[in-house]
Amino acid sequence: NITNLCPFDEVFNATRFASVYAWNRKRISNCVADYSVLYNFAPFFAFKCYGVSPTKLNDLCFTNVYADSFVIRGNEVSQIAPGQTGNIADYNYKLPDDFTGCVIAWNSNKLDSKVGGNYNYLYRLFRKSNLKPFERDISTEIYQAGNKPCNGVAGFNCYFPLRSYGFRPTYGVGHQPYRVVVLSFELLHAPATVCGPKKST
């Protein structure tokens, strides 16, 4: 009989979020998941679920829940969905086509923008091939755009693969920082350890 609540607040209220190319993952297990707390949290810009209804989450049990978190621009949030393409979905964070879970995003301009620009948040701009679902690539190898080998030196046709967002408070909404948490639900042939409040007695 599990009684402790799942530590969703640790994920959602973290002081610093990860850059999207180096997205953070927390495994959540052996706890009671009260999703209504999240669902009623006012400032969400997006709360979209795939393969599961957000209002039914509290009735369900899962083997594991993974909480992935990172920061992207407002106009990139739409790429955090199954079957998407674009710089983020291709080179930074890719969801599987059969994704079961929820994508939760909110504007973090007050936290993550600075006058003069916040350059701490990076994304991958160049990559030889697209990421596989949930693949994480933190390499900083110089990207070779031409035929000539770069030998690890940036220059003509040789690019550092990461780019900084440089968030400023005055940017338009599409270019403002958004914090994103992706909850993915794993249902294995194993005992369920993460259940909603109704199922955990």
Rank of each mutant, 00 (worst) to 15 (best):
L188R: 13
L188A: 15
F8Y: 06
N107S: 07
G172P: 13
P191T: 12
F44T: 09
K56N: 12
R163Q: 14
Y119R: 14
T170C: 08
F8A: 03
C61D: 09
E76C: 00
F44A: 10
D90P: 02
L183Y: 00
A81I: 02
N157K: 12
K148Y: 11
I80N: 02
N92T: 01
N58L: 05
F12T: 02
Y93P: 01
F41T: 09
Y123I: 03
R16K: 14
V181T: 02
I2M: 13
A67F: 06
E76P: 01
Y39S: 14
N107A: 07
Y39G: 12
Y159F: 13
Y121E: 05
T15L: 04
Q79M: 03
Q176W: 01
N75G: 08
L57V: 05
K94R: 09
S200E: 13
Y93G: 01
F47W: 15
V52Q: 03
D68H: 02
D137V: 00
T63F: 05
F17Q: 03
G166K: 14
Y123E: 06
D112T: 01
Y91T: 04
E76S: 01
N40L: 07
R124Q: 04
S200K: 13
S113E: 05
Y39E: 15
D90Q: 10
S164W: 06
L187G: 14
E10S: 09
V20Y: 01
N4I: 07
A81Q: 07
N151M: 11
R168W: 08
P161C: 05
I28Y: 15
Y50F: 08
R136W: 04
C102F: 01
R179F: 03
N13P: 00
K128C: 08
S108M: 04
Y93H: 02
F47S: 04
V103W: 00
F17T: 02
Y143V: 11
W23I: 01
P161Q: 06
I104G: 00
T140S: 12
A192D: 13
Y123R: 14
D9L: 14
N130Y: 10
V65N: 01
A42F: 08
Y21D: 05
S53Y: 07
G196L: 10
K26P: 01
N13M: 03
V181L: 04
P7F: 06
T63L: 07
L125R: 15
R124K: 04
S139G: 12
R27E: 10
F41N: 11
C195F: 09
V173M: 12
C158Q: 06
Y93V: 02
D59Y: 09
N87A: 15
V173C: 08
C6W: 04
R16Q: 13
G74Q: 10
W23M: 04
D97C: 06
F8H: 02
V182E: 00
V182C: 03
W106Y: 10
A190S: 13
K110W: 06
K26Q: 09
N24P: 01
E10P: 03
P82Y: 00
C102N: 00
K132M: 10
S200Y: 13
L183C: 03
S36V: 04
I80A: 02
P177E: 04
W23H: 04
Y143T: 09
G146T: 10
L187A: 15
D97Q: 09
N130W: 06
N130G: 08
T140H: 12
D59Q: 13
E135A: 07
T140F: 08
V153S: 15
L162P: 04
G116C: 05
I2H: 13
D98C: 05
